[in-house]
């Protein structure tokens, strides 16, 4: 028994403070719904790799947000770039119904900018039996992206499509060892305390 719990006043206070509030069913439901809606990663923006698990409401709100941004950009650019962007800015700023893909193209400047690029990953480990690359681009799925061993047995590599931008990643060695890339800068997630390697994927 600790000093605090030998004291009758404190012991009683601790008993009081340890009482759990009643289960709040509605609050728990809201928590799960909010979490399900909030889990969005760059991986989701790649239509070829999107997962059915993601919340539909987020996708709708993303499109609305992008539409608003594209409308703003359309207004700003219409004067200076009349000849080039006439069609796009008119579509975005007129308020006329338009399909989401055309709005997305306007916001991203070109479709090419948002398209995934082939990104190589290389990892040096001669003792590993299997290595997977995990990152926000594949939902940190430890089984999604296996790497291939080189003929000399030293290097593991793979090339996968990744949306341009900043991504966090690591290597999963033998299903259990989360290993950073020694050749890449690293960052620390404020919530996790865990580190990840950073890669900036861009167009050449």
């Amino acid at each position: 028994m600790s000093d605090a719990e030998r004291d009758p006043v404190l012991r009683r206070a601790l008993d009081e403070l340890r009482k759990l509030p009643p289960a709040d069913v509605g609050a728990m439901r809201r928590v799960v719904s909010a979490a399900a809606a909030a889990r969005v990663t760059p991986f989701d923006s790649d239509p070829g790799m999107s997962s059915p698990r993601r919340g539909r409401s987020v996708r709708v709100w993303m499109v609305v947000g992008i539409a608003a941004a594209s409308a703003f950009v359309g207004f700003a650019l219409r004067g200076a770039w009349t000849s080039r962007s006439h069609a796009a800015s008119t579509a975005a700023s007129s308020g006329a119904p338009s399909t989401a893909p055309s709005i997305v193209r306007t916001a991203a400047s070109t479709e090419l900018d948002a398209a995934p690029v082939q990104q190589p990953f290389v990892f040096n480990n001669s003792r590993a039996h299997k290595v997977f690359v995990v990152g926000d681009f594949n939902r940190w799925d430890p089984t999604a992206t296996p790497m291939t061993r080189s003929s000399d047995g030293e290097l593991w590599s793979t090339v996968i499509p990744v949306v341009p931008g900043r991504h966090m990643y690591a290597f999963m060695v033998d299903d259990s060892l989360f290993t950073l890339d020694p050749n890449a800068p690293k960052t620390r997630d404020p919530d996790l305390g865990a580190e990840g390697s950073i890669i900036i994927v861009g167009r050449p």
Binding site: D24, V31, A34, A35, W140, D141, D191, L192, A194
Partner: peptide, 23 residues
């Protein structure tokens, strides 16, 4: 409290893929 707990679980869920089980 309820809002903070919800915020916590949302952050947890987003960060879960990088959670290391040694912690």
């Amino acid at each position: 409290a309820e809002d903070m707990v919800q915020e916590t679980f949302v952050r947890l869920y987003r960060a879960l893929p990088r959670y290391e089980e040694r912690q």
